[in-house]
């Protein structure tokens, strides 16, 4: 589960906290929409949960690991249990699509056969297997987004975070992705999805974390 207790976040070298006074729990296997206007702090919130930034105040616990003042090594293990679909995809342009998606498995020391099988399986599911040997630079925005989703899903994460994961997808693909998220939740994965896609939120009503000006506006937990 995820637990925030009066958490604030102030990036180094800045004078003002981006997030503050965040207190909430998300149970294991829970699904949450992360909502709020642009500049509300959604991406910063996800950065906090992907361990891209340390909280500057309060207590943060992710999947049973206290992040506040945690040792670097323990955070590395925790990162492997988190899947993240960034808004800007964050793919490595010098590598092939296959190598980008296979990275989480390789970091865990998976065997070559397993890597091959799992990677092609997830690429096929997202309809980008034919692009496996291409560089992400050669792909369209939608294709890159699907590759980023594949990389986030391949390690079967305990926590899946997605920042606008459908903004470059067609409607049918967005619905399919939503269905996948729901399946993951049923398997016990905690999923938090930041979106502006109101149609998607209407189709899958779920509790939401609402942010405004860096703090909780309204949280509605199931």
């Amino acid at each position: 589960m995820i637990r925030l207790d009066n958490v604030s976040m102030q990036p180094r070298g800045t004078g003002k906290p981006i997030l503050y006074g965040l207190t909430l729990d998300v149970p294991q296997g829970g699904f949450r929409w992360l909502l709020g206007p642009s500049g509300a702090g959604k991406s910063s919130f996800l950065k906090l949960l992907t361990l891209g930034e340390q909280p500057s105040g309060g207590k943060l616990s992710i999947l049973g690991t206290s992040v506040t003042n945690a040792r670097r090594n323990s955070l590395t293990q925790l990162r492997r249990r988190i899947g993240f679909v960034p808004q800007d995809y964050r793919l490595i342009g010098e590598w092939s699509v296959f190598d980008n998606v296979a990275l989480p498995l390789r970091l865990r020391g998976a065997k070559k056969d397993e890597i091959e099988q799992e990677t092609f399986s997830v690429l096929e599911w997202l309809d980008v297997a034919r692009l496996a040997r291409h560089s992400p630079r050669e792909l369209s925005g939608g294709e890159q987004q699907r590759v980023a989703i594949a990389r986030a899903l391949i390690g079967r994460p305990s926590l899946l975070l997605a920042d606008e994961p459908t903004n470059a997808l067609e409607e049918s693909q967005a619905r399919r992705l939503l269905f996948t998220f729901q399946q993951l939740v049923e398997m016990g994965t905690t999923v938090i999805v930041a979106t502006h896609n109101e149609m998607l939120v209407r189709e899958a009503p779920a509790p939401s974390i609402n942010l405004r000006n860096g703090t909780l506006d309204r949280s509605d937990f199931a």
């Binding site: 992907t50 361990l51 891209g52 670097r72 090594n73 590395t76 293990q77 990162r79 492997r80 988190i82 993240f84 964050r90 793919l91 490595i92 010098e94 990275l103 989480p104 970091l107 990389r151």
Partner: peptide, 16 residues
């Protein structure tokens, strides 16, 4: 730097 940050964020150890 960007590639290193991505790999680090996905869970690579410093030694890797």
């Amino acid at each position: 730097r960007r590639a290193v940050e991505i790999i680090h964020a996905i869970g690579a150890t410093d030694r890797q």
